[in-house]
Design a protein around this nucleic acid. Structure first.
Lengths: 235, 235
DNA sequence: ATCACCTGTTTTGTATACGATTTAGGAGAT
DNA sequence: ATCTCCTAAATCGTATACAAAACAGGTGAT
């Protein structure tokens, strides 16, 4: 399953049943097939994966801890809907961490890792070419995880994988113009800078790349309807 | 329970039963009452908290995801033992993130928040004064979480709370000289710089503070006994 | 028509049962 | 004495049963 490469959680490699459920849901969310707000009923999911609620619950709790599922007590699990505030925080955190990651990736670069990045760029390109938007959006997130893998700092990798997953939800919720997610040209340029060993260029490209994605979003806070209720009723 | 303030996980505020178990174990680990390697048997924990294995398992899985408990399939859960490598990565990540946090904390500072920090410093001082090393070690970690709370970026706060918890295990495993954990004087100086609004000083103090803690550890990699087995047998 | 209330159904929360795996300890062989 | 094998006990993995809560739909009052 190429859909399950680059998942940072080591448990996802072991083929235990809860990991399978988690990965299935995760991939569906990353590919925008499951939309924010979607309810994930325990036995419904269980029937799909032929598992009891025990295992489904474990998978959902894992996803909740990763911040892409919200569990409301006695009500169930829902694909999470990050707020504009969370969206901004996510991008800020990504700029901070990925700038550090890309620097480490350069220090750790080898031919093997670089060719792996090339291969990934090729996959992104192919997905775009054949119009597979689902795979394209997922792969464009996984590029960043591939760079993190190259950096070899598993802590950064784990943190980033959660941030990337949330970013996928954020883009789906807040993007202004449909289409054109996270251009592969940027990824190519970042890869080139890594290959050239140009730390400053790579950091700048990475930070700007993330800033550009954020700039394409409409993160204006929806005004709280708290007080407005009175206003509406007194009109 | 003052022992449960500053836990970043929002679920810990709700008094549901799995959160109680999680918080109990977490606090015990943070206070070095539960040592790395300690086995956490499901029934045993369940009896202590008067809960079934279902709830204990949920709590243990949460702690595993937070990186302070390792779950080995069919063998059980153990208080985790971070490797020297993970230790170094943890400190690197903390320096990166806490430098950003302290800057944000300055931007967000108010009298209320500053007095909360003062209050915390007082608690640390008191714990040291009465020789309560358990509380002191926990409080010294919570100082950093208090600064993160002040910064108001919940994502940084969540990431940091996991890093702080692991740091507690790391210090226990690798410190050279017993005693003197993470001097409260440093915390006082950081607080002063925050109050003065001196961003550069605060960042430097924070980064140096973390570097100093790391410097007091012995993180020399234990050599792998992998090949040495043959050497031993051919002697 | 609208709202409040009641009731049957659905769904989640938790305990428990049972099979599978690991662990511990001892008997027997070398 | 040491090692191997075997059996019993302890422990984990998973499914399921039942209780509690939330939900949906309908009845009746206003």
């Amino acid at each position: 399953m190429p859909a399950e490469t680059y998942t940072a959680d080591p448990a996802s490699l072991t083929q235990d049943r809860v990991a399978r459920i988690r990965n299935g849901l995760m991939t569906a969310i990353l590919e925008h097939r499951l939309l924010p707000g979607t309810r994930l009923r325990e036995d419904e999911v269980g029937q799909i994966y032929d598992a009891s609620r025990t295992l489904v619950r474990a998978a959902l709790q894992q996803l909740a801890h990763e911040g892409i599922v919200d569990i409301e007590k006695n009500r169930g699990a829902f694909v999470s809907s990050p707020t504009p505030r969370e969206a901004r925080e996510t991008f800020e955190a990504r700029r901070l961490i990925e700038a550090a990651i890309v620097e480490r990736a350069i220090a750790a670069r080898t031919d093997v890792w670089l060719s792996r990045l090339d291969e990934h760029l090729q996959q992104e390109h192919d997905a775009e070419a054949r119009g597979d938007h689902r795979a394209a959006i997922r792969l464009s997130g996984e590029f960043h995880l591939a760079v993190a893998d190259m950096a070899g700092q598993s802590i950064y990798g784990n943190i980033l994988s959660e941030l990337v997953a949330r970013t996928s939800l954020i883009i789906l919720l807040y993007r202004r113009h449909r289409g054109h997610h996270c251009g592969p040209d940027h990824h190519r340029m970042i890869t080139d800078a890594i290959r050239a060993g140009n730390v400053d260029a790579a950091r700048t490209l990475m930070v700007d790349h993330l800033a550009e994605i954020e700039a394409e979003l409409d993160l204006t806070e929806a005004e709280e309807p708290a007080v407005s209720l009175a206003q509406i009723l007194t009109s």
